Simulated scan of single mutants.
Amino acid sequence: MTKKKRENLGVALEPETPIIPAAPEPALLQEVVQGASLQNEAELGTQWVISIDGLEEKLSQCRRDLEAVNDKLDREELSPEARRCLEKEQNSLMSKVSNYEKELKLLRQENQKNMLLSMAIFILLSLVYICWTS
């Protein structure tokens, strides 16, 4: 759908320039988890936060756009072509929301695994320090 058609239909447009950097691709995230692309843990933590925040922002924008499309479909009399176009946009937004939710779930699971691993390492090092200094 072109920008002009969207404006005529009153569908919310996606921002021209993203406010938050785009989330890395899942394949890149897998490399990050394995330590292949980032050297230190501070960069890794920052990358996860940016990825989760970016996906949450995209998800909320898609939900707002979906709500606007649903309102437009429910409240206004539309020509068959305009209705078809909005329904197509609605399906597209619903699939985007679904994909973003899946990616966000995976990121949160990886984040939880990393947090548990960090806690285990911290506890292990604390025990070694306590045993060493006793």
Score class of each variant (00 low, 15 high):
Ser126Gln: 07
Leu107Tyr: 02
Pro80Lys: 03
Ile121His: 13
Gln39Gly: 02
Ser51Ala: 15
Glu56Ala: 14
Leu127Arg: 06
Ser60Gln: 10
Lys113Trp: 05
Val49Trp: 07
Pro24Glu: 11
Leu86Ile: 07
Lys88Arg: 08
Gln34Trp: 02
Glu76Asn: 12
Asn8Thr: 01
Met94Leu: 10
Asp65Tyr: 02
Pro80Val: 06
Gln109Met: 10
Asp71Arg: 13
Arg108Trp: 00
Asn70Ile: 09
Ala120Val: 09
Val128Phe: 09
Gln109Tyr: 09
Thr133Trp: 06
Ile123Lys: 15
Met94Asp: 05
Lys5Leu: 13
Glu81Thr: 14
Ser51Pro: 01
Ser51Glu: 11
Tyr100Thr: 01
Leu73Pro: 00
Arg6Trp: 07
Leu66Gly: 04
Phe122Met: 12
Glu67Thr: 11
Val11Asn: 04
Gly45Ile: 05
Ile130Cys: 11
Val11Cys: 03
Lys4Glu: 13
Gln39Asp: 09
Leu44Glu: 10
Pro15His: 08
Asn111Pro: 01
Asp71Val: 09
Ile52Trp: 01
Ala42Pro: 00
Arg83Phe: 06
Glu41Gln: 09
Leu28Glu: 13
Arg83Met: 08
Arg64Glu: 08
Ser118Ala: 11
Glu43Gln: 14
Ile20Phe: 12
Glu57Arg: 13
Leu73Trp: 05
Cys85Ala: 15
Ala120Lys: 13
Ala22Tyr: 09
Leu73Val: 01
Glu67Gln: 13
Leu44Arg: 15
Ser92Trp: 05
Glu7Ile: 01
Ala36Ile: 08
Glu25Trp: 11
Lys105Phe: 05
Lys4Met: 04
Asp74His: 10
Gln39Arg: 06
Glu31Ala: 07
Ile20Ala: 05
Glu31Arg: 08
Ile52Leu: 05
Gly10Arg: 01
Arg108Thr: 06
Gly35Arg: 01
Ile19Asn: 00
Val97Gln: 01
Ser60Asn: 07
Val32Leu: 11
Val11Met: 14
Glu77Tyr: 07
Glu110Gly: 12
Ile121Gln: 14
Arg6Asp: 04
Met119His: 10
Asp71Lys: 13
Val69His: 01
Leu104Ser: 02
Leu44Asp: 04
Thr17Gln: 04
Gln90Ser: 05
Gly35Lys: 00
Leu28Trp: 01
Pro26His: 00
Ser60His: 06
Ala12Gly: 06
Asn99Lys: 08
Gln61Leu: 15
Asp71Met: 13
Ala68Ser: 13
Val11Trp: 02
Ser118Phe: 10
Leu29Arg: 10
Glu103His: 06
Val69Thr: 06
Glu76Lys: 08
Thr133Glu: 06
Glu101Arg: 14
Ile130Asp: 15
Ala82Arg: 03
Val128Cys: 03
Ala36Tyr: 03
Val69Phe: 00
Val49Thr: 11
Ala82Gln: 11
Gly10Thr: 04
Ala27Thr: 11
Gly35Leu: 02
Ala36Ser: 09
Asn40Asp: 15
Trp132Leu: 05
Thr17Gly: 00
Leu59Cys: 02
Gln109His: 12
Gln90Phe: 00
Tyr129Phe: 10
Val128Lys: 03
Val69Cys: 03
Ser134Thr: 03
Met115Gln: 06
Ser60Ala: 11
Glu7Val: 00
Ser134Glu: 02
Met115Ile: 03
Glu7Thr: 01
